[in-house]
């Protein structure tokens, strides 16, 4: 056994596979979308309403998918409620010093505010088509009026950002290689969540033929800032790994540099500067890069484990 290995290399992988990768990706898109919806609701102009609708719908769909993925990933899925209620006392289960416990409550708050944002967005359009459902919706119309609308938007911003960033902190609060060898993973996932959510909203707007120039310009500029910061955060993250960076001296390291940083960030940045490439290609690359980033971080660490007296990498 090598004696110069970091202590994190002697741990067992928790088998966080593709379900968790998808959850981190979709939860990040949802969190960023709700941030966008909240910002546009509070500081936007009337022409932003179609984008608010798209971002809110996207957030609520992501909330539902996230919950299903998280429950499906449990080894005993029927006991999912043990995360929020203590099974022996039926009292609330909350440990602020456990990032996973925090994450469960963040997802609950996020789902609530994604729901109120969606109800607010539905007031604009004739949906759902059934009159009975529409009249039911009118009962909760107060959500769209002050002060509830403001509370809903601020709650959406806070819970959206929390959902986007907590996943990196969750991984850092382990003893696994790569994840716990740096404190930068939260920022990396946060910035990636923001860039992928903006890419998703722009793709949706293109698909739904929503085109408001000033909103699109703002989204593109904000996306550009998020992508540049994501690139900086990834560099800081890799540098902060120190000796543990050897965990990425393999195909996952190549995927991080070429797939995530070059194809998923630098190329979309260049394409966005040249506006004749449209939305679809750069946004699709950003989304692919965001998914690959999570796969690199999770699977790059998962493959390291001790078998017998050997560290397998």
């Amino acid at each position: 056994m090598q004696t110069n290995l970091p202590s994190t290399f002697f741990t067992a992988p928790p088998e966080f596979g593709w379900i968790i990768i998808l959850y981190f990706f979709i939860g990040g898109i949802g969190g960023g979308s709700l941030l966008l919806a909240g910002l546009l609701r509070l500081f936007g102009i009337p022409a932003d309403r179609p984008y608010i609708r798209l971002a809110s719908f996207l957030a609520v769909v992501c909330a539902g998918i996230s919950a299903v993925l998280l429950i499906a990933d449990l080894s005993s899925p029927l006991r999912f409620w043990h995360m929020v209620i203590q099974d022996h006392t039926l009292l609330p289960m909350f440990k602020w010093w456990s990032a996973m416990s925090d994450g469960v409550w963040i997802l609950l708050a996020f789902s609530l505010f994604a729901g109120t944002a969606t109800i607010d967005a539905l007031q604009d359009i004739e949906w759902p088509p059934m009159r009975t459902l529409r009249s039911l919706l009118r009962v909760v119309r107060f959500i769209s009026r002050p002060p509830f609308a403001t509370i809903s938007a601020i709650g959406g911003i806070v819970s959206g950002l929390s959902l986007a960033g907590y996943t990196g902190v969750l991984l850092a609060e382990t003893n696994r290689p790569i994840w716990s060898d740096s404190s930068w993973l939260g920022i990396v996932f946060l910035m990636s969540a923001l860039s992928t959510s903006m890419a998703a909203v722009m793709l949706l707007s293109h698909w739904r033929r929503v085109h408001e120039t000033s909103t699109l310009e703002w989204l593109t500029r904000f996306d550009l800032v998020a992508m540049v910061l994501e690139l900086v955060a990834i560099v800081c993250f890799v540098i902060s790994l120190g000796n543990a960076a050897q965990a990425l001296y393999n195909v996952w390291g190549v995927a991080l540099v070429l797939g995530v940083m070059v194809v998923g960030i630098v190329v979309p940045l260049v394409l966005q500067r040249r506006s004749n490439h449209g939305i679809v290609l750069p946004a699709s690359l950003v989304l692919a890069g965001g998914l690959l980033l999570r796969a690199v971080v999770l699977l790059g660490s998962e493959r390291i484990h001790v078998v017998g007296t050997q560290v397998v990498r």
Binding site: P13, P77, R79, H82, M100, T174
Partner: peptide, 12 residues
């Protein structure tokens, strides 16, 4: 326990 596996990654 519901098998979330957080403890597995936390154990040094």
């Amino acid at each position: 326990c519901n098998g979330c596996r957080d403890c597995i990654g936390a154990c040094p």
